[in-house]
């Protein structure tokens, strides 16, 4: 164990101990501390408002397939947080992925480098036929995930990732499969523009950026929850295109 690593070990151990200490504090009267595991008191957190969907209205009950025209309308509360209450974070997050894809494109300066294809010999038969079968199914699964994002677990990110994996497998299996750079950038840009466009439209009509300007319908229905499904569709295309772009760049670097 080199001397340097020993110091690093000691310091990181000290760091971990200090962080652990934060959990073992016995609170004096009236002091706030971290709650033990499983004892997170939701009711005096903002999360309670998101659960009752009562940020602007003081709505109490959210019943599946019954309550109508609530302020957020998405059955999956996490989706309502990601795409509605805190959609500015998600917009920021999409930009991070977009910048990463752009950065990788620059670093590996693809445009003029000779197209060095992935050197793997043509992969085994099972892989090829398996992927030929799986590719459409994966795309279908991905679409299902992001279309039903506001009802069941899943959403833009997960759907996009599944689509990207489908393309990754396709690219791995046969070398002749070629996605043109133009198509990826077009998909990326249109998806990005539509997301920001939705936000700007909300700004123009309702007065604040990314505000929901559509009816939220009844909780649990497919066509409900206002602009959340639209946002998730845009996110899915964007994430899918970007991750495929990253993988394509890495393969062809």
């Amino acid at each position: 164990m080199k001397f340097r690593n020993l110091i690093a070990l000691v310091i990181t151990a000290a760091f971990a101990l200090i962080i652990l200490q934060a959990f073992t504090i016995t609170p004096a009267a009236g002091e706030i501390t971290l709650n033990e595991f499983g004892k997170a008191d939701i009711n005096n957190r903002t999360a309670q408002l998101y659960l009752n969907k009562s940020v602007n209205t003081d709505n109490k009950k959210v019943i599946y397939q019954e309550s109508k025209n609530l302020e957020s309308g998405s059955a999956n509360i996490v989706t309502s947080v990601v795409a509605n209450y805190r959609s500015f974070d998600t917009l920021g997050e999409i930009t991070v992925l977009f910048l990463a894809a752009a950065g990788i494109g620059v670093v590996l300066n693809l445009e003029n480098s000779k197209k060095k294809k992935f050197a793997a010999d043509d992969s085994s038969l099972i892989l090829n036929t398996g992927i030929k079968l799986l590719f459409p199914l994966l795309l279908l699964a991905g679409t299902y995930i992001f279309v039903y994002g506001h009802l069941s677990p899943g959403g833009g990110f997960q759907g996009g990732a599944v689509i990207a994996t489908a393309f990754l497998l396709k690219m791995l299996s046969d070398n002749k499969f070629e996605i043109k750079e133009i198509s990826i950038t077009l998909v990326e840009s249109t998806a990005g523009i539509s997301f920001v466009g939705l936000g700007l439209y909300g700004l123009v009509t309702r007065g604040s950026f990314l505000e929901n300007f559509m009816a939220t319908g009844t909780v649990g229905q497919l066509f409900s929850a206002g602009i959340i499904p639209l946002i998730y569709i845009a996110i899915a295309f964007k994430v899918g295109a970007e991750l495929t772009n990253i993988v394509k760049n890495l393969i062809e670097a």
């Binding site: 110091i7 690093a8 310091i11 990181t12 000290a14 760091f15 200090i18």
Partner: peptide
Amino acid sequence: VQNYALYSVLLFVILA
């Protein structure tokens, strides 16, 4: 760069 990262964790530990 590892020295740099080490110094930042070290600062945390010292100040704590």
